[in-house]
Design a protein around this nucleic acid. Structure first.
Length: 490
DNA sequence: TGAAATGTTGGGGCG
DNA sequence: ACGCCCCAACATTTC
């Protein structure tokens, strides 16, 4: 009665149903498989690989503390599992499900073969509140609009963590060979560009729990307003932890529900119920963001082409521009629009970007530069520590106007107005675009409009210290609307 | 989880 | 005193 516990995107011991079931059954061989071929183009990008290293190291330590060792193996999951079954004599394989089309195909194949051979194969839900296919319209169809989806999800009730971490795990009688984590070279070496990531993140379940605790103890109560201000610490920053499964949405749900009700939001019982007085309870706004994550997974499940093809078919004919130099300027934060450049530099340096700014930079790429949303998604995929196939694809399609419940295409963000609105004192731009730091707030988000005397006073020469705007926004906006016309009348 | 263009209103300057 | 005009402020429509 030895169970293989196949870890994947569920790198935690708490709220882990596959682990709980395996531990209840007897001795456990915990294994993580680095399957680099199966995901195809969706193999983790560089930043996500860096994160994975830290997450696996942390998980290994936690397992060690409970009496067993994490086995690391590289190769096709089916082959690795076969080999481990043979070498350990295990008679069951348990894992938590994931929902990328390639991962579902892979798991289906593995489950089929194992069962044919009389091996017990069981999978569980650790990653979502409600799995794809379980939230449907009255007609049994997938929701294409968020709000009714969220209503239906909420109506399913409350969620609570599945089970705490087993206090002790029984190891396999014989040792099992493992790769050395360092040999996987998940971290960059030459050059080592990960210093900024190390500064900002602590991968692993402990780091995740600490973030969650800190968030629900404070910022969540003012979340509704503060979450839009990239210069303040108003968001949870849990996304990379959620992506790696170091913490699960059920744990987040529970913690948010237990958070103190903000003053004015009476009867702090169920934050998902706004009490009818429209008091924008931060907890409720935050849970809606967790629900957006769920919605993305449901979309990916029902529309598996989501990462590659626009959900609205008319967008297949959209006249995207192709301009490698422009793409490069966007990637490196050299567009000449301070809020855009600040965001792109935050991403490059920390592997993360504030969500409000993600919307602004994405709008800029798609509308101002007229570049294909997929080129932006690709860059995010490689640079984000939280790069997640469902959220990334769904969100880029949302901004580009070709997705489910998408922002209408003609909704074009004006970067300087967005900057003035959401970074009014300029703290965010000053931090990430230090060459503009000495400009007064009123000029910071549109330095090209500043008088030469003011620029000189701040020590800025446009075109030398900081780029002139690479496009004229008003003009670019008209060009985008014209391009949209080209497909709208088809 | 937009912003620009266009329309409307009302106060105040001024002949 | 009155009407005209200007324009800021707000509302609505349009993209």
């Amino acid at each position: 009665m030895l169970t293989l516990l196949w870890f994947d995107q569920d790198l935690r011991l708490d709220d882990n149903p596959a682990l709980a079931a395996a531990a209840a059954r007897g001795p456990v061989v915990p294994v993580y498989i680095l399957d680099e071929a199966a995901p195809g183009p969706w193999a983790p990008g560089a930043a996500a690989r860096w994160w994975l290293h830290g997450a696996l190291a942390a998980l290994g330590d936690e397992l060690q503390a409970r009496g067993t060792a994490l086995v690391l193996r590289r190769g096709a999951a089916a082959a690795v599992i076969d080999e481990l079954l043979a070498s350990t004599g295990a008679d069951a394989v348990y894992w938590n499900r994931r929902y990328e089309p390639w991962a579902m195909r892979r798991a289906e194949g593995i489950k089929g073969t194992l069962r044919q051979r009389g091996i017990e194969a069981r999978s569980f839900n650790a990653g979502l509140l409600s799995e794809p296919g379980r939230v449907l319209t009255q007609k049994g169809e997938p929701f294409r609009v968020f709000t009714p989806f969220w209503r239906a999800l909420r109506a399913q009730g409350e969620w609570a963590p599945h089970a705490p971490a087993p206090a002790r795990l029984v190891a396999a009688p014989r040792g099992v060979a493992s790769d050395a984590l360092d040999d996987w070279h998940l971290r960059p070496s030459q050059p080592d560009w990960a210093a900024g990531l190390r500064e900002h993140w602590q991968p692993g379940a402990a780091g995740a729990q600490a973030r969650l605790d800190a968030f629900v103890a404070g910022p969540i109560s003012a979340y509704t307003g503060q979450r839009n201000l990239p210069g303040t610490a108003g968001t949870s920053r849990l996304s990379p932890h959620l992506h790696a499964g170091e913490i699960g949405p059920r744990q987040v749900w529970r913690a948010a529900c237990l958070a103190a009700a903000p003053a004015g939001a009476a009867r702090g019982r169920d934050p998902a119920d706004d009490g009818g007085e429209g008091a924008t309870d931060g907890r409720q706004t935050y849970l809606a963001e967790i629900a957006w994550r769920e919605f993305s997974y449901h979309l990916l499940f029902h529309f598996p082409q989501l990462p590659l093809e626009p959900l609205r078919p008319e967008f297949a004919a959209f006249p995207w521009d192709s301009d490698p130099a422009a793409l490069r300027a966007w990637q490196r934060g050299r567009t000449g629009y301070p809020i855009v450049d600040a965001g792109m530099r935050e991403l490059w340096h920390t592997g993360w970007m504030h969500n409000r700014v993600r919307m602004i930079v994405a709008s800029f790429l798609v509308k101002d530069l007229l570049l294909d949303w997929r080129s932006g998604a690709e860059w995010f995929w490689d640079t984000l520590v939280d790069a997640d196939l469902a959220s990334n694809a769904a969100s880029w399609q949302w901004v580009a106007g070709c997705g489910a419940d998408a922002a209408p295409y003609f909704r074009v963000f004006n970067p300087s107005l967005q900057g003035a609105k959401f970074d009014p004192d300029g703290a965010y731009v000053r931090h990430w675009v230090p060459e503009l730091a000495r400009l007064p707030a009123a000029l910071l988000h549109a330095p090209w409009e500043a008088r030469p005397v003011d620029l000189a006073a701040a020590g800025v020469v446009l075109g030398r210290d900081y780029p002139a705007p690479m496009v004229d926004h008003a003009q670019a906006r008209h060009r985008a609307l014209w391009a949209y016309e080209q497909i709208r009348k088809r």
